[in-house]
């Protein structure tokens, strides 16, 4: 696969020349491949928020380089706005950024900033609203009359409407109830499947990441400590726990089962996988 974003030895230090000098990201190198669904996990303070704000050029690295395609995004600082249209970033609790009179206008804000023509904007707004799970009837309402979950969908649609090549979501499901979380993640999965563009989801919920992504990057203490498929990452569950992260409950059960002497692969992470693993094992013993 071809990398769409390449981060090389990224360093970001806050408060240089002050007593509060601190590196939030320290020597991170990683790649994001075209079309993949990537999960970035790490606890608060691991540097994940700082990292993603570099990917669309909101923060300027104090060291290292970020390539989008083959170009260094800071090669021409005047063109940084274009980078922000190509790499869409949805912040945590994005509903607090809504400001327009109608849902339609708010979703159109980004697309309008791109200088697109009216018809194209209209097409994008409607398609983005659909991807975000917003009905046509909501478009003329004021975003402030909507429920918390719907407001968040409006904010996400606002970024999708820019039709970015990479969509980054920071904790998209934070604070939602289980049904809200399930349906929002379903919408994101559908967006990824149908658009085929790259999606990066930042989360500290292991269960959420495990169930959705193709590949995981684990951040801890301002650096990358692991990366690989969910299976590869969760096979190192002990190390994850050591850096202060939880592992999915199913993985914990599987680990406990191995400890009790049940011979299965402890790196399973979904209920279905563990069920399958146990069924296979029982089938196996029955045959003996």
């Amino acid at each position: 696969m071809k990398p769409i974003i390449r981060v090389e030895n990224l360093v970001h230090t806050y408060g240089i020349n002050t007593p509060f000098c601190r590196s939030a990201v320290d020597g991170v190198s990683m790649e994001i491949y075209e079309g993949e669904f990537l999960g970035i996990i790490g606890h608060t303070g691991s540097g994940k928020s700082t990292l993603i704000q570099h990917l669309n050029g909101l923060l300027k690295p104090t060291g290292g380089t970020i390539f989008l395609g083959d170009r260094d995004i800071w090669a021409d600082p005047k063109k940084i706005r274009e980078v922000r249209f190509r790499v869409g970033l949805v912040f945590q609790y994005p509903e607090y950024q809504l400001f327009e009179e109608t849902v339609y206008k708010d979703i159109a804000f980004g697309a309008k900033n791109m200088g697109l023509e009216e018809g194209e904007i209209d097409r994008r707004v409607r398609s983005a609203a659909a991807f975000a799970g917003l009905g046509e009837d909501l478009l003329d309402k004021s975003p402030f009359d909507l429920s918390g979950g719907q407001k968040r969908r409006v904010a996400i649609a606002g970024v999708i409407a820019m039709e970015p090549e990479v969509l980054i979501l920071d904790e998209p499901s934070a604070g939602l109830d289980p049904a809200g979380r399930r349906s929002l993640l379903e919408n994101i999965r559908r967006y990824h499947r149908e658009r085929g563009t790259t999606v990066v989801m930042v989360s500290h919920s292991m269960d959420e990441v495990a169930e959705n992504v193709d590949r995981i990057i684990v951040l801890a203490d301002a650096g990358v400590v692991m990366s690989g498929t969910p299976h590869q990452v969760f096979s190192r569950a002990r190390e994850l726990m050591d850096v202060g992260l939880n592992v999915p409950q199913v993985t914990q059960v599987a680990m406990e089962l191995t400890r009790l002497g049940v011979d299965i692969d402890p790196a399973v992470y979904t209920v279905a996988d563990l069920r399958a693993a146990l069924a296979a094992r029982r089938g196996g013993t029955a045959k003996c």
Binding site: D177, P178, A179, G180, P248, Q249, V250, V253, V271, A272
Partner: peptide, 13 residues
């Protein structure tokens, strides 16, 4: 609109 813990889901399965 709620969920059961994954342990319960597993045991059901």
């Amino acid at each position: 609109g709620l969920d059961a813990p994954h342990t319960v889901e597993l045991l059901h399965g």
